[in-house]
């Protein structure tokens, strides 16, 4: 099936389905990604939100959404989505609502839920071929509680629980879990990585996903000013640098078949992305950790070498 694609920022859907006035931090990269996701999805959605930063989107008695929003514990958002999907299907079958009133069921979670606590219930939902969307805003730590280490935290990053010190000067010793590959192994109809700095690519991916019935999964990098130790004004810039250095690969997988949707013509060195973030500052000051920086560059180079085969 051919899908209509957009080409420039001027083609982005003008409707705002996420209104201002939320309690999210100024310069929240996750919020920017979500804003574009909801532009692409439209207002006929129901969001099932696991606990995380985005808990605070709807604080009683206010909500920034034009659609319904249901709140769940961290590990159970896909189970909540199953319940909502079943309820909608039953209501349609019984004729209580018309098929036009059908809603898209959208799970919204952070990386703590997606990579960690909610992984098994997500696996279950993909396995059952639940017809839903999953958006993960990945700020690479448990941001809502003070930026503690999560399995999504990249190698050598500083979090509240991987403080670089005399014994372990690198910060986080383990590498980021490869959630894309874990999800891809289920062969879902649609799976993609997205970036708030590439809204055209983001919207096109949602448009493409629309044709599939079953799990449609999205992982968005979400620059986080307080957690990453960056200026709020630089969030879009860091999202872009992550793509330009090759650290955040923009790709999609249809029934498990991978395709990269954007490959930088010339990759920037990872150092450009790392050096201005507080969470990587220890790699440059007071002593430059050459070995660690090289290891990060090698990990990125290794990924692209493998991907181009």
């Amino acid at each position: 099936m051919e899908t209509i694609t957009i080409k420039t920022l001027k083609d982005l859907p003008p409707e705002e389905n996420l209104l201002p006035g939320t309690a999210m931090c100024a310069g929240c990269g996750g919020l920017l990604a979500l804003r574009h996701c909801l532009k692409a999805l439209g207002d006929k959605t129901i969001i099932v939100n696991a606990a995380g930063c985005f808990t605070l989107l709807s604080i009683y008695p206010f909500t920034p959404f034009r659609n319904s929003w249901l709140y769940t514990a961290m590990a159970s958002a896909p189970a909540g989505a199953q319940g909502v999907r079943d309820a909608l299907d039953i209501l349609i079958r019984k004729g209580r609502i018309s098929p036009e009133e059908n809603l898209k069921v959208v799970v919204l979670t952070g990386d703590g839920t997606a990579y960690d606590m909610g992984l098994s219930s997500t696996s279950g939902a993909i396995y059952r071929n639940l017809d839903f969307y999953y958006i993960c805003y990945d700020n690479e730590a448990y941001g809502n509680t003070g930026f503690q280490w999560s399995p999504s935290s990249p190698f050598a990053s500083k979090t509240a629980t991987t403080m670089p010190g005399r014994i372990i000067p690198t910060g986080a010793e383990l590498s980021k879990k490869n959630l894309f590959e874990i999800w891809r192994s289920h062969k879902p109809p649609y799976l993609a990585t997205i970036s708030p700095a590439h809204p055209v690519d983001l919207v096109n991916k949602f448009k493409k996903a629309e044709q599939f019935k079953g799990p449609k999964l999205f992982i968005s990098l979400a620059p986080c000013p307080p957690g990453w130790g960056t200026e709020p004004s630089r969030s879009a810039n860091f999202a872009k640098l992550a793509v330009d250095t090759g650290i955040w690969a923009l790709k999609e997988a249809v029934y498990g078949e991978i395709r990269h949707t954007f490959i930088p013509k010339k990759f920037k060195p990872v150092e450009e992305y790392l050096k201005e973030q507080g969470r990587f500052a220890h790699l440059f000051k007071p002593v430059r950790q050459e070995e660690t920086i090289r290891k990060i560059q090698e990990m990125v180079d290794g990924y692209w070498k493998e991907a181009r085969i």
Binding site: L19, G21, P61, F62, T63, P64, F65, N67
Partner: peptide, 15 residues
């Protein structure tokens, strides 16, 4: 349980 019945109301918070 708390239920919010008016949508799109956060602009009233004036951040």
């Amino acid at each position: 349980s708390p239920a919010i019945n008016t949508t799109g109301s956060t602009p009233m918070r004036k951040t």
